[in-house]
């Protein structure tokens, strides 16, 4: 059974599928533009600092924890 959890809870090195983004319109649109759409695959590279390093569509992003908690993913 895949679990749905916030991106911050994903262990390093794991890949998950974006299920939902619980952010306001503006922020959500911005995330979608950067490739965080529902269904896209996200790999967590680093999550032990204040921010995360994630890869979406082959592009690497530094992502603040606050933002990362708003992105729900299912692990697969």
């Amino acid at each position: 059974m895949p679990h749905v959890l916030p991106l911050t809870m994903m262990p390093e090195g794991k890949e998950g599928k974006v299920v939902s983004i619980n952010a306001g319109q503006g922020l959500k649109r911005r995330l979608v533009e950067m490739g965080f759409c529902e269904g896209s695959l996200v790999t967590v590279h680093r999550s032990e600092r204040g921010a995360l390093v994630v890869v979406v569509n082959g592009i690497k992003y530094a992502l603040g924890k606050g933002l990362a908690t708003k992105i729900m993913v299912s692990d697969c």
Partner: peptide, 12 residues
């Protein structure tokens, strides 16, 4: 105010 969400591309 609280810090705004941080997102930044890390280019290769």
């Amino acid at each position: 105010g609280k810090p705004s969400p941080f997102i930044m591309e890390l280019p290769p």
